[in-house]
Amino acid sequence: MEEIFFNEDAELLYKRIVEINKELMNDSSSKSLKKFAILNKGTLLDLCNCVYSTIPFSNPPKPYCSDFAEMTAMIIYKLNKGHCFADGNKRTTLLIIMELIKDAYPVFYNDFFKGGLSIFLKDMIKRNLNEDDVINWVRYQYDLKYEISDVEAQIIYLIMQYKRHGFYDLAEERYKECLAVYGPSVALYKSMAKVYTCKGEYDKAINLYEQAIEGSKGKIDEFELLNLKFHRKKLLSRNTISKEEFSLYLKSVSGNRNG
């Protein structure tokens, strides 16, 4: 099939999605078929073109995606369900979405959002959710930022960056300052819980996850609640699961796959 793109942006998106899947297949540490193949090129082309094009015969021209939420929802739905590649479709979807939000919504570029999206990608297929369901889920995630101020969001983002680079004391200082000025929030608790996890202060992390779960009642959706409970369960079972499994979990929390 000839590759005909609506514009340069559509072509760049297509090439990046393909590149991500190739990287996954070439990753010796991943559990995959280790075979790169595009199974549904037409679906992938249609997805990338729709993201940037307008609905035919609409007057005035109406874009398929009216905002960033609809754009990412379309990618999540069509790429995750379209089975464009022989393997790694969920992981490819996860990685391209995380790349896209890195600049547009940096407060969501963290382990918590990534974990929630991972759960949703599996649940979307299991429950056979439609495109409207996906759009509603995505909008809800992005709307969560209004539960805290923009200043708080940036502080939490900074805490997560300190955590990622191992500056745990600086992360804790920002956490305490934010807590004193703005008060507790689910977002603040969950970010600091990950810092405590990386520091090896597991009881403190568990306590914050429990406070986040208690404070989230009626405020966050089931996928995020499951993610909070997942982290709490991992920490509570740290002495009963294998060292290898717990080590992999710690690496995923730290954001550093190599240690």
Rank of each mutant, 00 (worst) to 15 (best):
E173T: 14
E177D: 12
V151M: 10
Y182F: 13
I156E: 01
E173Y: 14
Y157W: 09
A187Q: 11
A153I: 04
Q154V: 12
I156F: 05
E173D: 13
Q161D: 12
Y175S: 04
Y146W: 13
Y182H: 12
K176T: 06
V151D: 13
F167D: 15
S185H: 00
V181S: 01
L158Y: 11
V151Q: 12
E173S: 10
G183C: 01
A187T: 03
C178F: 01
V186E: 06
Y182N: 08
K163F: 02
V151N: 11
Y146A: 12
E147D: 14
A180E: 10
K163Q: 07
L188H: 01
K145I: 13
Y182I: 01
K145N: 09
L188F: 05
V181L: 02
L170S: 15
K176A: 03
F167S: 15
L158S: 15
E152I: 10
Y182E: 01
E172T: 10
L179F: 04
Y168N: 07
Y182T: 03
Y157D: 10
D169G: 10
L144D: 07
D169H: 13
Q161V: 11
A180L: 05
K163E: 01
D169T: 15
L188D: 00
I155L: 11
D150P: 06
C178K: 04
E177T: 12
S149N: 08
E147T: 09
V181G: 01
K190H: 04
Y175R: 02
Q154R: 15
A187D: 10
L144A: 08
K163G: 06
Y189P: 04
E172M: 08
